[in-house]
Structures are given as C-alpha cells and as structure tokens.
Nucleic acid binder design. Sequence first.
DNA 1: CCCCAGTATCGCCTGATGCGATCATCATCA
DNA 2: TGATGATGATCGCATCAGGCGATACTGGGG
Lengths: 313, 313
Amino acid sequence: MLELRLLAALDAVARTGTFGAAAAELGYTQSTLSQQVAALERQVGGAVFDRPGGARRPRITPLGRLVLTQARTLLAADVAARDAIDRFHAGAGRVDVGTFQTVTNVLLPTVVDRLRVEHPDADIRLFEDETDEPPIDLLDLAFLDVPGPDDADHVEVFRDEHVVVARRGAFPPGPVPLADLHGRAMVALPPICDQAVVEAALARAAVAPDIVFRTVDNQGITSMVRAGLGAAVMPVLSVWGQRHDDALSFHRLEPAVPDRVVQVVSRGTLSPLAMRLRELSVEAGQHLVRDLAAADGSGDIAGREGAHPPGTS
Amino acid sequence: MLELRLLAALDAVARTGTFGAAAAELGYTQSTLSQQVAALERQVGGAVFDRPGGARRPRITPLGRLVLTQARTLLAADVAARDAIDRFHAGAGRVDVGTFQTVTNVLLPTVVDRLRVEHPDADIRLFEDETDEPPIDLLDLAFLDVPGPDDADHVEVFRDEHVVVARRGAFPPGPVPLADLHGRAMVALPPICDQAVVEAALARAAVAPDIVFRTVDNQGITSMVRAGLGAAVMPVLSVWGQRHDDALSFHRLEPAVPDRVVQVVSRGTLSPLAMRLRELSVEAGQHLVRDLAAADGSGDIAGREGAHPPGTS
DNA sequence: CCCCAGTATCGCCTGATGCGATCATCATCA
DNA sequence: TGATGATGATCGCATCAGGCGATACTGGGG
C-alpha cells in the first residue's frame, strides 16, 4: 500500500527541483527527504529520480513521472477528503428526515427555513412515509407520534391535545363527555400510529364509536365532518388550519384521551446538521405550544377555557 | 494527512460488520483494528462507528459514512496507482522516440512491429524532427547520426558507408578517387548532422565540390542525380531503395570518408519499454549490417568487392 | 448466573522514522 | 589547479508509533 507521506515527498521534490527545498517545504530535513524518496523507490521497484551527482539537480525518471501522476491524483483525493470532512463538521452535508402531515405543515416550514439560513448548502430531504414502521435506520431523524424502537433516542417536540371536531350544532357548546361518542357516527384516520392510541383509550373507556369512514388525509377528515358524515377525534394541530371554519365546532373531551406526543427519533450519533435540525425542531415545538396557549381562551375550542395548554404537563 | 492504512481499516469494518472480522481480513489482531479505528476517529474529529456495547455490532455514524465514501475513493486510487506501476514494469506505457528518414525507413518498421507484438498496448510515438538540436529531454530515445550531449548515453545501432551516387556513365566503373569530386557539380543534403561531417572530411582533403542543389529529402537527391544535375555522396542506407535503379551507379570512395554512425541517444534511466526498444534497435541494426554484407559482392556498388562491410570495424 | 460475542485497554517489544553530523561528488570560479 | 559551494547519501542515535497478547469491560440471551 502506497504511503501519502512518500508521495508528497516525491511531489515536493519534483516541484521544487531539489531534495533540500522539498524538505524545507514539508518541514523535514534533507536527510529525511532522501530516505523518504529512497523508501518510495524501494516500494515502486525502481528509481524515481536520477541523481547525476555533484551540484546537479535530480531529474525525474519515466517511472518517476508515472508515479508522480498517480501521486498527484491521490494527494488531490486526500485534500478533497479532508475538505469534505471539515465541511461536515461545519454543518454541511445531507440530512434525511422522516415526517408526517402535521409536522410537515406546522413545524417543518419554520425549521427548514432557519436551517437553510444557517447552512445554505445543506441538503435537507424529507420523507413522508405512509407505513407505520419508519425505517429510522435509513434516516438521520424521524418525527413520530408513537414511540420508536427501544434502543433509539427520543426527544419530545410537542404534545397535541385531542379534540372533537363536529359539524356546528351537532354538540352543544362546551366539552363533550367521552361517553357521548358511544355509538356515534365518526370519521377517522387509519388505525395506526396515534389513531391506534386514541381508539385504544376509547375502548378502555368502553366507548365504541361507529366509524363510517377512514382516510389518511387530515383535510379529508374535516371535509367529511363538514359534510355531516360524522364527528371526529383529532389532534388539535392536525385541524388547526380549520379552526376558523364556521361550519365546524371544536370541543374538548371529558375525560380527555392522552395527548398525541410528537417526538424526534434517531439512532446513534447524529451529524451536526441533524443535531441542529433537532434543536430547531424542539425550539419550534415550544413556540408552537406557546402560540397555542396564547390562542387559548379565544373560544375557538369550546370548553377549553381555563384548561392547561397542551405541552405543559 | 489521512493514512490509507486507517482508511482500509474503516472500510474493512464497514464491510465485515465487526472489528474482529476486519482484523482477520487485513491480517491484524482485533486489538490493532480497534486502535486503528480509534486513531482514525481522532484524526477526523469524531466517531465513525457507534459501539452499542455487548454483543451488538458497531454501526456506522453519519461522519463514518462520509469518511467511508472518501476512503473508498482513495483506496481505489491506490490500487489503480499500484496497478499502473505494475503495468509499467511489465512494459506497458508510452515511449517517445526521435528519429530521421533513414532510421524511419530501414530500421523502425521492424523494431516497432516486434515491440508491438511483445507489448500490444504500448503507446509508441515517433518524432521526425528537422532541427539539428534534438530535444532528447522531451523524448525517451533519439536516433542521431551525430553525437548527442556529452552527458547522454550513446548506443551505436549501425554504421553506414558513404558512397558516390551518380548518373550511370558519369564515372567509370569502380571506385571513385576522392579528388575526382573536386569542382564537380553535386547535389546534397543540408549541411547539418552527418552531411556536415562529410563536407568537413572533403574539406580536410582539399576537395571542394560544386554543390548546385540541396534538399532534406533523400529521394529528392536521387531524383536530381538521375536528372543529371550532379552526383552525390550519400550514406548507402539512405539510397538503398534505389540500388536497382539502372539509371544510377554507385561507387565507393577512395579514400573513404568516415562512415555515418547511427546511435540511440538517451538521458538517464529508461523505462522498460524504451530499454526494449533500444535492444530491438541494436538487434535490427546488426541484421541490417549482415544483410548489407550478404548483398555485398553482387556488384551493386562498384568497387565494393572484397571490402569490409560497414559496421564490422 | 454464566456464557457468548463483541470492543477497549494495558504493557511490552520491535521497527520505522526523523534528526544531526559527516561524507562524496561534481560544477564553478578564482 | 585548487578552493568553494551546492547537492544527495549514509551513519548512528533517540524516539515513538504500531502491532501483539492478555485481559478487562459490556450487554444480551440461555
């Protein structure tokens, strides 16, 4: 295996013309350069320089020319490699992020924007995967609303209260008793991830709604509710865009079902870029919760007044 | 500066999955591999593998992935380089050869043919330079009919007798006394290289021909002789192609002028390919001389009978 | 609770590596 | 022709990097 140290010596001698000058350039003594070139010559099986003797300068041999071209390729690759590593530490590079609708809509726009300001050359890729087994091994970070693998690292980003979304008039103003959902026509997300958690909570309370339609699309849910197909239990941030829709009403549940917990999950060491993205996500999550709390009491969500805002538990 | 040794360790661990297997593959012990990876991590400023502990295998980090791609580039360049060096020793590569008319016509066809049989991928380039200062520094080998620089290596390829070429009937059969050329109309090559040597020899003998035409082209000389413009003194191999031309007669000179000495000149260490080309040239030169001697006595050259053939002195 | 499959660490030894000093060679110039 | 200077080679020495073997450490699984 060739040694870059020796190839650098060859290159320096070829460029400077003498062993002594090359040594000075590389910070060695002439004697060391002499030995390095000799070692290289042993390795490549022939002289790379003719030493005419006396005060005459060494002249490169055909073999030396060949080795020199190869050496320069290798040395260039070396500096390119170290450069890439430096840029990595400076935060450049690529980060693959798994996400889902709510996060994509309410959290990531801010996060991605800030990260791109800090690292304009960053390569941020989002994957909105519809399966319930997120391949976090192929990603740097994954946003999840259910716990990831045990051996993965979890960082909570925000908590998201579940509310009843109904056609205005379907429920009286104020909180909805959980038992009122029993037997009621409802629309829902597919029973995976957070939705599975919600349905399990309902089942534990012996509440069995009549789910008449399922879709993966948050907007599809509210559209169906608006059309009178049924009510829905949704994380509040999933329907935040419709909070001023007069055709809909929002109600707290009593007793509440557990909040949706949105976390960033990762496995192993993170790149600086991924680390920063996670930090920004947590910050943005806190802002989100604060904004939500500020909007609280405006009457958008019936029965919400005086309640603790989500995310402060 | 990165070390290929450590990059190979990284690559091996990444491929085999464990330090131990990588060590076995590379012929080290596990402890050594552990130290090598640790050294690499110190150099790149971060972990390249997460070691989960216990029986679980190490997992590459984002930094590790980056370094690995760079490492594979470098390692590939390393094998490519060593491969090129091996092929060089096996005789592949390029050889630049300086030549001139006679050598191109009577010697190199054989030599190049044989060399290409031995090394089909050899890149043989011929340069027929018209200046009298051959840039042997830019060539691997140069054929010359005059001595090259003092510090260059000279190997004689063949000697070439000077003969008088005349229109048939211009001279009586048999050798031409040198003095007969005095004042005679003659055609000649430009007074450089061997021609300068010939003219110096004539001048030393106080013979001053009347040179009525000069051209660099050997065929141009014989054409002019045939047309009756005058006689010529030429190395026999330069006019060998016209030896059966009935319009011409060939005569030895008495006393002879010195033979033209064709040599291969080089400076410094030769590549295996250049070395072989020089060897083949010497062999081909000997064959040439032998063929010439065999053709001797056929009467093609008047006055040549019984003379020593050129090249045997 | 022990064992297994992994890695890390310690102490030791050898050889590689760099240095300083000195030598040898040859061109140049007085 | 002899001194000088520029150049690379070589020698001996000190240091330390790199490899090894043994052993400790870790966590999962029987």
